[in-house]
């Protein structure tokens, strides 16, 4: 099939970027979206041009490296990661717009690559359970109701891709932050640090320049892992509790 792609090209963080159009005459519908970009890059390289920079690693939908905005939708038209999107979701002759995540918390590094270091710093602000190696009690000493464990797992499947931020009209990273709050908050092991965790993570979220959540829900629709909206409600509940308890 033949397709046309409009790709955001930006040399580095300080450069001004622009959309550039490329024609691809010979792609197959079994190709993944990133393989299509590989093909484009091979052509560009042979022509001596700079290939399009984009992040990807596992190409299995689990590492969260990949992610571009395709036709205005983070990760494109299917509920999956960019690497798991295939050209069979498009038609012969389509024009496809490809842009990087756009949010001031995610500055563009080059072309389609953005800096998501903010996510790591949000985790640093409390997204963990403080347990030193070797001091852990026997694993089965503390049963966890299956339902809680399953819910915690569901929230823990967040891959840190950042699509939620790219989709949120406010550039808010609340879904990402709340997924971690929920994962750890549902487990008995996570209780001692429950208040300090939510306080720290929300403060860091704001300090990174992400927007506030106004409960639009666009994030969950774009999320390749289907992180549910009630995690944000849980974060709100936890923060309210922590503030009310005077823990701030």
């Amino acid at each position: 099939m033949k397709i046309t792609v409009n790709v955001w090209r930006q040399k580095n963080a300080d450069a001004k970027g622009a959309m550039v159009t490329y024609q691809l005459d010979d792609v197959l519908e079994d190709m993944s979206f990133l393989e299509m970009l590989d093909v484009l890059n091979e052509t560009l390289t042979l022509a001596g041009e700079d290939p399009v920079a984009f992040d990807s690693d596992c190409r299995e939908g689990i590492c969260g490296s990949c992610g571009v905005v395709i036709n205005g939708i983070p990760h494109g038209p299917e509920v999956t990661t960019t690497c798991q999107l295939h050209l069979r979701s498009f038609k012969d002759g389509d024009v496809i717009d490809i842009e990087p995540w756009r949010a001031s918390g995610f500055p563009v590094v080059k072309d389609l690559v953005v800096d998501r270091g903010a996510f790591d710093r949000i985790i640093q602000a409390g997204g963990y359970i403080s347990v030193n190696t070797g001091s852990a009690p026997e694993a089965n000493n503390l049963p966890v109701p299956k339902e809680d464990a399953d819910h915690a797992f569901e929230a823990a499947t967040c891959i840190g891709c950042g699509a939620c931020v790219a989709a949120c009209p406010n550039g808010s990273a609340m879904l990402f932050t709340a997924a971690k709050i929920t994962h750890l908050g549902l487990l008995p092991q996570g209780q001692p640090e429950r208040d300090s965790r939510v306080l720290g993570m929300v403060e860091q979220h704001d300090a990174e320049g992400f927007g506030g959540c106004t409960n639009i829900g666009e994030c969950t629709t774009a999320c390749p892992k289907g992180i549910p909206l009630d995690v944000i409600s849980r974060l709100n509940r936890d923060l309210l509790g922590a503030l009310a308890a005077g823990k701030a």
């Binding site: 359970i129 001091s135 852990a136 009690p137 694993a139 399953d150 823990a156």
Partner: peptide, 9 residues
Amino acid sequence: DQCVAQGVP
């Protein structure tokens, strides 16, 4: 033991 204490679900 270690992983469970860390919150691995």
